[in-house]
């Protein structure tokens, strides 16, 4: 699967999204584009656990900002920042991540469209080569 042809071929992408139906759909879109999806996972705890297991080989991430029960993706974003892994925010609430550290990150407004997601990730990866062999 990781060698499948497509604009995101060979890219390992962490997907964090608490809404099952949306997560499932995005997962499919990414796979179809050739990416290897890490997840999807619905919470900070799950996401951090995956990052620690796969970090050296992560190319990027798509982070839903609001993860239910008041939890936000900020700890995940902070951790990815430390690791130098690029990511995009996917959010239904435009105000929720507005601090200085993350304001400049690319951001996708929900509802997310397939082409928009793929184009944003492509742009994110444009100057980098895939980490996976």
């Amino acid at each position: 699967m990781s060698q499948a042809p497509g604009p995101l071929a060979g890219r390992r992408v962490l997907l964090v999204e608490d809404e099952y139906l949306i997560a499932e759909t995005m997962e499919e879109w990414l796979r179809m584009a050739g990416a290897e999806v890490i997840g999807p996972v619905p919470s900070v705890a799950h996401a951090l656990a995956l990052i620690e297991g796969a970090a050296p080989r992560l190319d990027g991430a798509v982070l839903d900002v609001s993860l239910g029960r008041g939890e936000t993706a900020r700890p995940i974003a902070d951790r990815l920042n430390e690791l130098g892994v690029p990511f995009v925010f996917a959010t239904g609430d435009l105000r929720i991540i507005d601090d200085r550290v993350h304001r400049e990150r690319p951001r996708l407004e929900k509802p997310i469209r397939r082409l928009q997601l793929l184009a944003t990730l492509e742009a994110l990866f444009a100057s980098r080569s895939p980490t996976s062999r």
């Binding site: 809404e19 139906l21 949306i22 499932e24 759909t25 609001s66 959010t91 239904g92 609430d93 929720i96 407004e109 929900k110 509802p111 997310i112």
Partner: peptide
Amino acid sequence: HRSRNLLGVIAS
């Protein structure tokens, strides 16, 4: 957040 998510769910 919810209404935007809902649209995502419907699309899905």
